[in-house]
Structures are given as C-alpha cells and as structure tokens.
C-alpha cells in the first residue's frame, strides 16, 4: 500500500469517528462515543504510519526529505498535528466533546489533500531554497501552533455557547488559555526559526513578505488575546472573539497569502 492510499483511508476513518461521536452525543450513548475515540486513535496511528511511509518512499526515490515540502504534505501534517494536540492535551469526557469538532476539521484537511484534483500529491525533490535543516523545525512548530489555536477555538465555542464567560471559573476557560499559550509558544518558535532561515537563505530575517506579514498579524492577534485576558483577569467574550479573529488570520496565513505575490508560494 502506498502512503497516499493510507492517508486517503484515514479521511474516512476520521469521518466515521465524527459520525459516531455525533450520534453518541445526541443519543447520550457513552460507549459509542468511546468506541469512536478508539477509532480516531486508530486513524491517527495509520496517519502517522502514512507520513513515515511517505518519508521512506522519498528516500527510495533517491530524493529523500521530510514530508513537509508542499501543499499536500502540509495539509496532511496539519491534520496530524491537530489530532495530536487534542489527544495529548485533553482527557475524559471533554476530549470526546472536543473531538466532535476536531474530527471533521482533520478529515476535511485530509480529504482536500487526497481527493482535490487541484492538489499534486506526488513526491517531488526539494528546490534549492527548501534544502535546509530549518525546513523541518520551522514547518513543524508553525503547524503545531496552528493546531493548538484550532483547539483553543473549540474551547472558545464551548464557552460562548454555554455562557461560561461570565463566571470565568469554568475549567474550559483554563483549557482555552492553555491552548492559546501553547499555540503561542509553538508559533513564536515557528516565526523565530523562520527568521533565522530567512537570514541564511535570503540575507534578511524579516522582509515583509505576505506570509511573514500575515504570520505577524496572527502572532499579534494572539498576543492581544493574552493581554486582553490579563487586563480582564479572565477569559471574557471579547478575549474569545479576538481568538476567533486569530483563527481567521491563521487560515489566511496558511492559504490566503497564496493569492498575494510573495516568496512562500510553495506553502
């Protein structure tokens, strides 16, 4: 089996897990939801294997490199990272609740990567600009940051829907803050490593390229989230709305900037 097939299959495992989680929630069947969780874990394991296999396939082709070099590979890794953050950070009942939101998002990324006719899933050699040890650490940290921001938004939705922003004492507020904080750390490292790489490759660590500018916009919005929270002393509705703006900015940083002229056209 090729890595592409494996990754494509995970799309359906994630969709199945999402359906079971949804039904389990609506009919209040805890066992179904727990089974869905196990399915999601299995899908995640298969996705991990798919990524490793793709890595090995590239070496077998004689052009070995980490599978983080084009839009297809970044979508797959984004999906992997989002699931990883959910599994690693959340336990118990809350985890299934969050997974109900994360599974369709992760499946959408995989499905778009695997089945969209506009996306080239073939393994290509690295162009000279990408041949750097900074590639892996820069891409991994950026996407772990994006993934944490997505999970933070799920907690933001929970809080808004349940009116918990008024009390601010709910553990969801704490989870929201932690996810933003972890995302902020990862994304900061992503920007810093990107700057070092840009300094080595292009001779300037900051050049207001659209991808760089939008990464800064995202970083600033989440900095605003953290400061607004300190100012209010808790996670208010305004803090959550700012984080939603941050998530829109994440999406634009990832995909939108490709419609603006710049150096990061390979995503």
């Amino acid at each position: 089996m090729t890595s592409g097939t494996m990754i494509g299959i995970v799309t359906f495992i994630y969709l199945g897990a999402f359906s079971c989680l949804l039904v389990g929630r609506l009919l209040d069947k805890k066992r179904l939801a727990n089974a869905a969780f196990l399915g999601a874990v299995g899908g995640f394991a298969l996705l991990t294997a798919g990524l490793v296999l793709r890595w090995r396939e590239s070496y077998a082709m004689g052009i070995g490199h980490v599978p983080l070099s084009n839009f297809y590979e970044s979508l797959v890794f984004f999906s992997w990272a989002t699931t990883l953050i959910t599994f690693a950070g959340i336990r118990g009942e809350t985890r299934n609740r969050v997974l109900t939101f994360i599974m369709p998002a992760a499946a959408l990324m995989l499905g778009y990567a695997s089945f969209s006719p506009g996306i080239d899933s073939s393994i290509q050699p690295l162009i000279p600009a990408l041949k750097s040890n900074w590639l892996a650490i820069h891409v991994i940290t950026c996407f772990l940051g994006y993934a944490s921001f997505i999970v933070a938004s799920v907690f933001g939705i929970f809080m808004l829907r349940n009116g918990h922003t008024l009390s601010g004492r709910h553990p969801w507020g704490e989870m929201f803050y932690r996810c933003v904080m972890i995302g902020f750390v990862f994304f900061t490292v992503g920007i810093l490593t990107g700057s070092v790489w840009a300094h080595v490759a292009w001779g300037r660590y900051w050049g207001w390229d659209p991808k760089e500018t939008w990464a800064l916009i995202t970083w600033l919005l989440y900095a605003a989230v953290l400061h607004e929270r300190v100012r209010s002393g808790r996670v208010t509705g305004r803090v959550i709305m700012l984080s939603f703006a941050g998530l829109l900015s994440v999406l634009f940083t990832y995909i939108g900037v490709n419609y603006l002229p710049g150096l990061h056209s390979y995503l």
């Binding site: 004492r169 803050y177 904080m181 750390v185 900061t188 810093l192 100012r231 002393g233 808790r234």
Partner: peptide, 30 residues
C-alpha cells in the same frame, strides 16, 4: 537574535509557572 532568544526563553518559562489566574484562583483584574 538575542532579543528573539530571550523572548523564547521567557515564554517557555512562563508556561511552567502557574498562570496569573486560573480556575478557582481567580483574582481581581490588573
């Protein structure tokens, strides 16, 4: 570069210190 490294170090350490406020430990706004 030094500034970036200091910021990284600071924010990493901030993750390991207890947050300025949290559940049950809510404090007055700054």
């Amino acid at each position: 570069g030094i500034g970036g490294a200091i910021f990284f170090l600071g924010i990493l350490l901030a993750c390991f210190l207890p947050p300025s406020s949290g559940p049950g430990r809510e404090r007055a706004p700054v």
